[in-house]
Write a protein that binds this DNA or RNA. Structure first.
Length: 458
RNA sequence: GAGAGCGUAGCUCAGUAGGUUAGAGCGACAGUUUGUGGCACUGUAGGCCGUGGGUUCGAGACCCAUCGUUCUCCCCA
């Protein structure tokens, strides 16, 4: 047997890590619940058909595919060989793989809505906290198995949903203690920019290039636009667009100027204005300072059609820790048209990394064992065990040392496990019907009757 | 998909211009005469130096390949 190891990009989580992760999950879940979202869980695997073609070419490559069973069936060898030939030239893979691990939570949710839209009450608000898998190359803040916490509203065009989702972001990150910038933009504005630059088909090229602005600078963005087939006058429009600056309302009016009477842009700007304006009146004091218009924000997933969100943590170098947006026809690919939706996602694993780096986890999260009962012999341990069970019935976390051993050993074990109290029941205590309770942090101890121990406030 | 760095004890690492039996700290385990721990002292265990080739009288060190891992780009949470 080779050395045991873990698949690339996956991790084990020890007790401390699990507790910290649960703290994040519980915080986010409680916010979802307060906003009226209902939980949903879907299988780890989906039919490959459900996932393919939803995330763009890059995304398709990163989907983990599951090998079909029964490929060694001799009767089917020729068929399987033929199918494999198709795989080699990038065609139909059904004979080899027809299931895959989910890549995100949104598409499985869309599949669920498409399957159940007859029974659902719209608008339907669901949240989902489950792992997803991507065959990406791991690096800082990037894993092959990671959790997403999504909440989506489907069946409503109302922009109040966008406001609520922005507020959920602000509230959750406030509770976690992370300073964040919530960037917003609208796909409609990006589409309008493409219209100004000679065609909607240019939108993808333009967004890919301008998305890199803060990373590579304006000159290199212009180079890339040139390479992607835009001419000088088009690039100068984009340069104007990218130079829009100032506070929120300055940005909005500058954009209005640039786009003039373009109907698509007008709609997009109105939506952003609504979101900003409504949020400011929502009396969440921290919300205003955190929402920023970022006209360079594009977001990769190509099903977004309206307002898009992206969350970045301040004071730390980490990719986005959340993202989302409006998609007006998500279930259309499942032949259920006209169900619009909007949703956001939290990247728990990156949030964890950020909180670890900024030391934001509360200290009092330890929920380890509170009391160690010493094992000082046959009769002693029996008495201790009985007492321990009574404490456990009162929800005190107890353990008894697994075998009779020297004091030294049992103390050291308690130290290592950071157990704060020890109960010592030896022959003396047994005779008197008492026990010795020692506070291991303070180093003090007292003799209690068994009744006093059961009433003790740990 | 493209590129760079790193693989020596359970962990963090030293290992000088290639030269005998590969080291330290921490951790683990045991003991310092079995009713009071954290400290200290003593001792023990634990390494085909990632793997496979090559150069050399001689390789942990140099070269090639391979695997693993970290990071960057792409893309993304």
């Amino acid at each position: 047997m080779a050395k045991p190891s873990l698949p690339q990009g996956t991790r084990d989580f020890n007790a401390e890590t699990v507790r910290k992760r649960n703290y994040i999950f519980n915080t986010i879940r409680s916010v979802f619940e307060v906003y009226g979202f209902q939980p949903l869980e879907t299988p780890a695997m989906e039919n490959l058909d459900t996932l393919m073609g939803k995330y763009g070419d890059e995304g398709d490559k990163l989907i983990f595919k599951i090998l079909n069973n029964g490929l060694d069936n001799v009767a089917k060898h020729q068929q399987i060989k033929d199918d494999f030939e198709k795989v080699l030239i990038g065609k139909n893979t059904k004979g080899i793989t027809e299931r895959a691990l989910r890549y995100d939570l949104t598409i499985p949710f869309a599949r669920y809505v498409a399957m159940n839209h007859g029974q659902l009450t719209f608008p339907f608000k669901r949240y989902q906290i489950q792992p997803v898998w991507r065959a990406d190359r791991p690096q800082r803040g990037r894993y092959r198995e990671f959790y997403q916490c999504d909440c989506d509203v489907v069946g409503s065009y109302s922009l109040i949903n966008e406001v609520e989702l922005a507020t959920i972001y602000a509230t959750a990150f406030e509770k976690l203690g992370i300073d964040v910038e919530i960037k917003i933009n609208s796909r409609k504005i990006l589409a309008a920019l493409a219209e100004l630059c000679g065609g909607a088909d240019k939108m993808i090229d333009i967004t890919i290039a301008i998305d890199k602005l803060d990373k590579i600078g304006i000159e290199k963005v212009k180079d890339e636009l040139l390479q992607r087939g835009l001419n000088d006058s088009q690039i100068s429009i984009i340069e104007k667009y990218l130079s829009i600056d100032g506070d929120t309302f300055q940005k909005l009016s500058a954009a209005e100027n640039l786009f003039q009477n373009n109907a698509t842009a007008k709609k997009g700007l109105e939506e952003i204005y609504f979101l900003i304006n409504y949020s400011q009146q929502s009396q969440i004091s921290n919300l205003k300072s955190q929402i920023n218009i970022d006209f360079t924000l594009a977001r990769g997933l190509n099903y977004y059609t309206g307002i898009i969100f992206e969350v970045k943590a301040k004071n730390v170098n980490m990719g986005s820790i959340g993202g989302g947006g409006r998609y007006d026809d998500l279930t259309g690919t499942f032949d259920v048209p006209n169900i619009p939706g909007v949703g956001i996602s939290f990247g728990v694993d990156r949030i964890y990394d950020v909180m670890e780096e900024l030391k934001l986890f509360p200290a009092e999260m330890q929920t380890a064992t509170q009391v160690l009962f010493f094992n000082l012999g046959e009769a002693e341990s029996r008495a201790a065990f009985g007492l321990m069970q009574q404490l456990r019935a009162k929800n005190i976390r107890c353990e008894i040392y697994h075998e009779q051993a020297k004091f030294d050993k049992q103390f050291k074990w308690a130290d290592k496990k950071q157990i704060p109290y020890a109960v010592i029941m030896g022959s003396t205590e047994l005779e008197n019907g008492t026990c010795t309770l020692k506070n291991l942090k303070e180093g003090v101890q007292e003799i209690l009757t068994n009744e006093q121990l059961l009433a003790f406030e740990f």
